[in-house]
Computed example of a mutant assay.
Amino acid sequence: MDVQTQNEITRVAVRAAQQMLAWGAESDLVEDIGQRMGRAFGMDSVELSISANALVMTTLFEGRCVTTTRRLREHGLNMHMVCEIQRICVQSEKGILDLAAASRRLKRLTPWTWNRWAVVAIIGPSCAAFAHFFGADLAGCLITALAASVGMVVRQSLARRHFNVLINWAVTAFIATLVTRIGGLVEWTQTPEIASAACVLMLVPGFPMINAVADMVKGHYNVGIARWGQATLMTISAAIGITLAMQLTGLGWL
């Protein structure tokens, strides 16, 4: 194997690891996929160092090392992308894909997403169901569904315009809470506080929190702490939006 081939194998392996991390995979899985991709194409060993915003990979073949660094640009959470990269890795290990084919597949990957209006249609009733479980009346459940749906439209619109995620969370929480607070002001519902609590459940950063704990449990403390910090800031941003809406309407937790 010549140096050029080893360089290309390193590029393919680090690209797979980079995309896995960017799309929300836990660090242990990222490390595993990067190493397996390298070994699938003939490397003796692959070493991968993961930090909060960068990857460093070294491939070793017959005593010759190639090291490369890639900066991480987060894309959000998309398990479709994670599964597709794992599929490419498995097919490479089985010999179904050669190096060139794997490289092309990785470059052509595009995230699959739900239709935005289908998401809105799902989120509204979901938050309304939580409001019902919490004891809200029928009007409170309907207001929760409306507030969550409006909030999701706002969240999607801000995300499409590439607003900072913290601003997105604060504005979305503010709008959703404001809708439920208005419902309380005009006395459409007797349980506006339950509606206010349920309509923002779509903003709970559960996946980043789970990944953060998983990373720290498995020894990836730097990435785990970074993810934990991001999830905490998202929660604080949502709390700020909720508080501003409550202050604007003059209603606290009734």
Rank of each mutant, 00 (worst) to 15 (best):
M1N: 09
M1A: 12
V3P: 04
Q6K: 10
N7M: 13
I9N: 01
T10K: 11
R11A: 15
V12Q: 01
A13D: 01
L21G: 01
S27I: 02
D28N: 11
V30L: 01
E31R: 11
D32G: 09
I33R: 00
Q35K: 15
R39G: 04
R39A: 04
G42H: 14
M43Q: 13
M43P: 01
M43F: 06
L48R: 03
L48T: 05
S49K: 15
S49A: 15
N53P: 02
L55M: 09
V56C: 10
V56G: 00
T59A: 11
L60K: 07
R64W: 03
C65W: 06
T67G: 10
T68V: 15
R71E: 06
R71H: 12
L72V: 15
R73G: 05
N78R: 13
C83P: 01
C83H: 13
Q86C: 12
I88N: 00
C89W: 08
C89A: 14
Q91V: 00
G95S: 11
D98W: 06
L99H: 02
L106M: 12
L106C: 06
L106F: 03
K107G: 01
R116H: 07
A118T: 14
G124R: 00
C127T: 11
A128Y: 04
A128K: 09
F130I: 13
A131E: 04
A136E: 05
L138C: 07
L138A: 13
G140C: 04
L142A: 14
I143V: 14
I143M: 03
L146G: 07
M152C: 11
Q156F: 08
Q156I: 12
Q156E: 14
R161E: 10
N164D: 14
A170V: 00
A170H: 05
T172R: 03
F174K: 09
I175P: 06
T177I: 06
L178K: 10
V179E: 09
I182N: 01
L185K: 15
E187G: 07
T191Y: 01
P192Q: 06
A195W: 00
S196T: 08
S196Y: 01
S196F: 00
M202G: 05
G206K: 09
N211A: 09
N211Y: 02
A212F: 05
A214D: 10
D215N: 13
D215G: 10
V217Y: 02
K218I: 02
G219Y: 03
G219W: 09
G219C: 11
H220G: 07
N222E: 06
G224K: 03
I225V: 15
A226D: 12
A231C: 09
M234T: 12
T235H: 02
I236V: 15
A239Y: 00
I242A: 10
T243M: 05
L244I: 15
A245S: 10
G252R: 13
L254Y: 05
